[in-house]
Amino acid sequence: MSATASLGARSAKVKPMRSLPLRSHLMVWLALMALLALTAGSSFVPLGTFNVVVNFTIAAIKAALVLVFFMHVARGEAAVRIAAAAGLLWLGFLFALSFVDILARGH
């Protein structure tokens, strides 16, 4: 049946799949587990401020893996990507302008 691939805008070009993409999902799972081990392990190594950077960079990578491989954000329409990006951008507005105040308070 051809409802298979009608998710994305370019779906018509994608051939219907007959089996589950077990291999690719297993790879993503392994990557996620490895990153989890890395972030948990690294936080026990004294890196100073760098601990925070490593932790949140890894979190961002994990989130990106979920977004790309499970939520198919890259495969869908531009409008979907704009919606996703807008959420992050607006969160950026909130953080950036509030911290202009918070960081400069008392100066």
């Binding site: 409802a3 298979t4 799949m17 589950l20 077990l22 499970f70």
Partner: peptide
């Protein structure tokens, strides 16, 4: 969950 979605997509 991702695999469940794939399974539903192929019927």
């Amino acid at each position: 969950m991702a695999l469940a979605v794939e399974a539903a997509e192929i019927g």
